[in-house]
Write a protein that binds this DNA or RNA. Structure first.
Lengths: 153, 153
DNA sequence: TCACATTTAATTGTTCGCAATTGAATGTGC
DNA sequence: GCACATTCAATTGCGAACAATTAAATGTGA
């Protein structure tokens, strides 16, 4: 008699897919971030770009893209929206006119102070110790890097 | 003298964000899946819907949404594309006319055989043992569920 | 110098993802 | 039975995400 889930089907079961775990966790994070970032007037990808710029600004679009694994098709319109919100300024480099340099405005710099509350709220929502989160993060990053290594073949 | 990364900034550093690890890992998975799913004529979210339906079809849109954490705004157009590809059929339930039941076509069922090659390729790309992947998956799912629990408050 | 390749952003078109709203069907409390 | 709330899918609008292409600037080799 046929079993409920024949062995041959196990690899195709949704609950066995690590990719779905990652995919659905990313969406869950997004939903937790949403109300926090609404107060900053940012979407989650915009917040990521701001994190990059708060570490170092006046960088070309390409650098931001390499850091976040995003291309100009995603970043160009996103950065235009950040510019429309007066958080960044986009200027063509004079040394290399192919590049567009992204710099923070005063408002963009100032937003960093407001943003400091965000990671605390996320930590609370995770309901998990910092060391556990760090360990998970490192594992996930290692997996991501192995996946990305395969793509570049 | 100021340090490179003052302690107050540590929580805002990109590389310390578990959410970015998850976000970027999800994109990395997506890129690995893309060439595999292209052969099936599916996008990654469409593949997830098919995984759900291969386990059990003739289910309302809502059930699929609960399983994948997606709403009708995402699923309705996606399911219409799957219908246009002759993989599913959408019919209003006669018992409850509010519901639209999603059933697999013969083609939709048949695609399952082709799909069996996908998880193997992903496992290879992960470059990691099954037991390690299962352990990670369980941790990520547990984190996701804690995050989702916070949202419903 | 000049042809050619490479680099960089921008653009176009398709597909997600979600908030907010709509409209129809169903359930409920009186 | 009837007003009312709830449920479900569809729709609209906006912001990603990415493939593919374009155009301009720069680099390279003969």
């Amino acid at each position: 008699m046929p079993r409920k889930h024949p062995a041959a089907d196990q690899p195709l079961r949704l609950d066995n897919q690590i990719c779905f775990a990652v995919y659905s966790a990313a969406h869950a994070f997004n939903r937790v971030y949403k109300p926090l970032l609404d107060r900053l007037g940012l979407t989650y990808p915009q917040y990521l770009v701001m994190l990059v710029l708060w570490e170092r600004d006046d960088v070309p679009v390409k650098d931001i893209g390499e850091r976040l694994f995003l291309d100009s098709g995603t970043l160009t319109p996103l950065l235009k929206r950040l510019e429309a919100a007066h958080l960044v300024k986009r200027t063509r480099s004079s040394e290399d006119e192919r590049q567009v340099l992204i710099a923070l405005t005063a408002q963009g710099h100032a937003l960093k102070d407001k943003a400091r509350a965000v990671p605390q709220s996320i930590l609370a929502a995770s309901d998990c110790s910092v060391s556990e989160l760090v360990a998970m993060k490192d594992e996930i990053v290692a997996l991501r890097d192995r996946l990305n290594a395969v793509i570049g073949e």
